[in-house]
Simulated scan of single mutants.
Amino acid sequence: MKTHRNTHTNANFKVTKDISNANGFLLPYTLYNKVKTIATYPVKEFYLQNVPELTDYKFKMHKNAFVNDTLTIQAQLVKQDANGYLVNIIVTKAKKSSKNQETICSALFGFPLEERAFQDNKTAC
Rank of each mutant, 00 (worst) to 15 (best):
Cys125Gly: 03
Ala11Ser: 04
Ala75Phe: 14
Lys34Arg: 15
Tyr41His: 11
Arg116Asp: 13
Thr72Glu: 13
Phe109Ala: 08
Gln80Val: 08
Lys60Val: 06
Gln49Ser: 06
Leu77Tyr: 12
Thr7Asp: 15
Thr72Ile: 14
Gln80Lys: 15
Val87Asn: 02
Leu71Asn: 01
Phe66Arg: 10
Asn21Ala: 13
Pro52His: 12
Lys14Tyr: 08
Asn33Val: 03
Tyr29His: 07
Lys17Ser: 09
Val78Pro: 00
Thr40Glu: 00
Asp56Asn: 10
Asn64Met: 01
Asn33Trp: 10
Tyr85Arg: 08
Glu102Leu: 09
Asn100Thr: 11
Ala117Lys: 14
Arg116Gln: 15
Thr123Asn: 07
Ala117Met: 05
Glu114Arg: 05
His62Ala: 13
Ile73Val: 11
Gln101Glu: 13
Gln119Cys: 03
Lys60Gly: 03
Leu54Ile: 06
Val35Trp: 05
Phe109Glu: 10
Thr9Gln: 06
Val91Lys: 03
Glu53Met: 07
Asp120Arg: 11
Gln80Ala: 14
Ile90Lys: 04
Thr16Ser: 14
Met1Gln: 09
Ile19Asp: 02
Pro52Lys: 12
Gln80Trp: 14
Gln76Phe: 08
Glu45Tyr: 04
Val91Asn: 01
Tyr47Val: 05
Thr30Gly: 03
Lys122Met: 09
Gln76Tyr: 12
Asp56Phe: 11
Lys93Glu: 13
Cys105Gln: 02
Pro112Thr: 12
Ile89Trp: 07
Val67Trp: 07
Asn6Met: 09
Thr70Glu: 13
Gln119Trp: 10
Phe13Thr: 00
Leu27Arg: 12
Cys105Ser: 00
Asn21Asp: 08
Thr92Ala: 13
Thr37Tyr: 10
Thr40Ser: 04
Thr55His: 06
Val35Asp: 04
Phe109Gln: 06
Asp81Met: 13
Pro112Cys: 12
Asn88Arg: 14
Val43Cys: 05
Glu114Lys: 06
Asp69Glu: 10
Ala65Leu: 02
Phe46Tyr: 15
Pro28Leu: 15
Asn50Val: 07
Leu27His: 11
Phe118Glu: 02
Phe118His: 05
Asn12Arg: 13
Thr92Ile: 12
Ile38Thr: 04
Val35Phe: 09
Pro52Asp: 10
Leu86Cys: 14
Ile90Phe: 06
Gln76Lys: 14
Thr103Gln: 14
Met1Arg: 08
Asn10Phe: 06
